[in-house]
Amino acid sequence: MPEQEKKKILVIEDDRSLQNALVEIVHQEGFVSESALDGEEGLAKIKTFGPDLILLDIILPKKDGFEVLSEIKKDEAIKNIPVLILTNLEEVDNVQKALDLGATNYMVKSDFSLKDVVEKIRATMK
């Protein structure tokens, strides 16, 4: 598939080891990706990279995932990009807060394998 037709995924995750694994699997699955290590960098990259889907962690330096999410949803230009939350915060109020803010899906890292994540990405892209 030519590069320009591949779907683009932005990975916003401050843990490098998790980020590496995510980026690798996403490439193996035939997506193009970029990554950001904090909320501010993430927001900036959404504008420059123009992703088709965003993987977003909650606990992030500078701006946390909730802030990033609400800024995405406030911006007309990018508010329709699906956002999948990937976090280890498993409490219901956090899940509810993210979904209320407009997240497409909420995944608790320790419960999900990379395969599950890829499946969710594919399901969302359809």
């Binding site: 080891s17 998790l18 694994a21 690798e24 890292k109 320790s110 394998s113 990379l114 395969k115």
Partner: peptide, 12 residues
């Protein structure tokens, strides 16, 4: 955090 990192990297 680190446990999921190990799990995912192992999967890769």
């Amino acid at each position: 955090g680190p446990l999921s990192a190990i799990k995912w990297n192992m999967e890769v």
